[in-house]
């Protein structure tokens, strides 16, 4: 039978502290981008950089920079829900199939 520890053991050289019971001590994002089957595609010719897409993104992964005329998405986390496309006043965002999905 496996020998059970009855005490938290200090690690070699330095004293470590251990909590007992349920607690989360790491801040970690899940790579929800892998859920995506469609992705937003912005027509920058039409875009007025109002930021409405970013304001309504549930994952807060849209970056709109008017000065640089850029709209970017963090593909690690974009779930491809399509809210950005739907709230766009200029309707300049199109949801296009993910290539990976099309290949299947």
């Amino acid at each position: 039978m496996q020998k059970q520890q009855t005490k938290p053991m200090p690690a070699c050289g330095k004293t470590k502290k251990y909590f007992l019971g349920p607690v989360a001590l790491e801040f970690v994002a899940t790579k929800t981008g892998v859920w995506r089957s469609v992705r937003p595609d912005v027509n920058l010719d039409v875009c007025v950089f109002c930021g409405n897409c970013g304001k309504h993104c549930p994952a807060d992964i849209v970056s709109v920079e008017k000065a640089k005329r850029s709209v970017s998405f963090d593909w690690d986390y974009c779930k491809g829900c399509g809210i950005c496309a739907n709230v766009c006043p200029k309707q300049c965002i199109t949801m296009i199939p993910e290539e990976g999905v099309c290949k299947l």
């Binding site: 007992l20 019971g21 349920p22 607690v23």
Partner: peptide, 19 residues
């Protein structure tokens, strides 16, 4: 820190053992 969140099966017995 976030206290008392959902605990995986992998840790549950161990936390009961701690008690």
């Amino acid at each position: 820190m976030f206290i008392n969140n959902l605990t995986p099966t992998l840790d549950y017995s161990e936390m009961r053992y701690q008690q």
